[in-house]
Design a protein around this nucleic acid. Structure first.
Lengths: 350, 350
DNA sequence: TTGTAAGCGTTATCAG
DNA sequence: CTGATAACGCTTACAA
């Protein structure tokens, strides 16, 4: 006869039972120092007896805060979900949120318009205290909207514009791509291709820049036909390979901007009878778990995805709880993890 | 001079500008048929001018509904997140929720206790209108709690107990495992091992049952040493292989309850110089995208993960919006997808 | 240290 | 068809 179907016990019920005013109960919940121990205990006892739990919605309305943060996905949700990047970054965000007792809120729109609409609702509807953009693309209406309304948000990746005014957590992707390319260069490769993701994503742009820079610094020309864009998916890699390998002078090494793409690349290459790393070398990006069990295991640039998420959540909450928190740019380190997908360049006429 | 920093325009502001009562504005928002067209237009005009957006929190408080559904993850969140099952089921849920304009809410607790606490908060705090359990395990406090409080929820998988009283979306896992095992049997294999996940998960139990049944029906004895449990992760598969292959009489075929585990299995086998499918055959489960690019491509039982999520969301919402909705059991069909990880049994002394 | 009462922004019940 | 007015359950001055 207890703990059952006690439909909505309110603060008033507790107050009545404990013989205090509702406001006192509220203060006990907040553990206000201005309430006597005795009262606190009495109230807590009453809460226990009644199985009281605060109504968070009411609390949110009164206190103008929800203890929830909104997650903003790219409009290509399906692609995004399929990629191991998503769960990893989510883990990081979840951990960061958890430490400060925040929950996560996701809208379910699919198209760009729907998502925009959902976000506006979420923000104006004050369902969340802040938002994390899990991607960065050029010309993003959502960023503009959030900025205009001075709503707390941080972006994972480098904002396309107003970089100095938007707190963001990012890798040094230019540098990372440069590192990867240099590694390939150091193995003697000169015909190096680049397989990137959606060209509207800033991360794609930056990695391409790094790739180009490395080539230029090595005194090589950048060949436009060596640069391919696809989706951050297995098929993206497969399609890229088809194009690249049909060239008269195909590359002998590839910088691939995503592990999942790399799997597709290798898979396609296999079916064509081309071997990695014997016939072609691959440096990949992200170093998700799959990179290890790939055949061959992938040499991949670890970008510490978990940390991207974790820092994003942490800094967003800082911002939420202290509106005058300064704008920050947080750079998460990367690291080239060498496995077995690269080999020294061997001239054809051997 | 418009659309900027209009901090919290309320229904009252709109009412004032449109020269009507707040309640009228509320009715216009709900598109009540009892409001004249003229008034509606006038009010809508005012809303537009002021950039009004309803405060969803206030609405929730007044209407006792949030248009959000809570997601309940297993306590081994990290493992769960890493598995492609998660994004797939999430996609399905998201789609189902989207069609009825629901959002998703996730708590961030890590340990079993924290999660339980978070869920209670979420439920009693009326932050969501219903919940989806993304797993089913034995002795689940959360299920008991939800049931006791008659809170709308559905589980993905088969509830451990009170099966008839809990709406759930599941595969016929016993049958599916039986099908997979029979297929192996039909190839001439008799020494078939089973690699399952966490033994507290109902899905593991059922797949194991199906496996056993198939063997028994074929007149074979179930060997306890052929049954291994691990995590639904790459390492889980790797560890299982170590155990299985150190047996004096190792199996010639494996039924593996998860694709990611299968990758681990194959990977480990490779390093041991054992070839799939020549030396050992594998039937896997889930048929996630990875199954196709695995080397060799996996023969895997497709359980239609997306549909699991989709139906769960759809039926939960049905339940939310109609409390007298009957309890339902929804069985999503499965299908054995044959690829290249199985070969006919070849006796050793060939 | 505690109580009173006024919000928070909606919805919903009555009147009219 | 529209307007008052009372909830919804909590927080937070302001009093006492």
């Amino acid at each position: 006869m207890e703990g059952v179907i006690e439909l909505s016990v309110t603060i008033k019920d507790v107050a009545k039972l404990a013989n205090v005013a509702p406001s006192t109960v509220s203060r006990v919940i907040a553990d206000s120092p201005r309430i006597s121990q005795k009262t606190k205990e009495r109230v807590r006892e009453a809460m226990k007896q009644l199985g009281y739990h605060p109504n968070l919605i009411a609390r949110s309305l009164a206190s103008q805060s929800t203890q929830a943060i909104g997650l903003v996905m790219p409009s290509s949700t399906d692609t995004f979900f399929q990629n191991p990047f998503f769960p990893s970054v989510l883990r990081g965000i979840s951990e960061g949120a958890h430490q400060k007792h925040y929950a996560l809120y996701m809208v379910t729109g699919k198209t760009e318009q729907e998502i925009f609409h959902d976000i506006v609702q979420m923000v104006q509807g004050s369902r969340v205290d802040g938002a994390i953009l899990l991607y960065s693309k050029i010309e993003d209406k959502i960023v503009d909207y959030l900025k205009e309304n001075q709503f707390p948000f941080v972006v994972i990746g480098k904002p396309h514009k107003d970089t100095e005014e938007i707190t963001h957590v990012d890798n040094d992707n230019v540098r990372a791509a440069k590192d990867g390319t240099k590694y390939l260069l150091s193995l003697g490769h000169e015909r190096i291709g680049f397989v990137g993701g959606n060209p509207h994503l800033v991360v794609t742009i930056e990695r391409m820049q790094g790739y180009k820079k490395a080539l230029e610094e090595a005194g090589l020309v950048v060949r436009q036909e060596y640069i391919i864009h696809g989706q951050f998916l297995i098929e993206g890699g497969q399609v890229a390979v088809e194009e690249l390998m049909s060239l008269k002078e195909p590359p002998t090494a590839l910088l691939v901007a995503d592990d999942l793409m790399s799997l597709g690349v290798i898979n396609k290459l296999n079916t064509m009878g081309i071997e990695v790393p014997n016939d072609i070398s691959i440096v990949s990006f992200n170093n998700v778990l799959l990179a290890q069990v790939s055949n061959p295991p992938l040499t991949s640039i670890d970008i510490n995805i978990f940390d991207l998420g974790f820092e994003a959540a942490k800094n967003l909450i800082l911002k939420i709880e202290n509106p005058k928190e300064p704008v920050k740019r947080i750079i998460i380190p990367h690291e080239l993890v060498i496995r077995d997908s690269c080999a020294p360049f061997k001239s054809n006429d051997a």
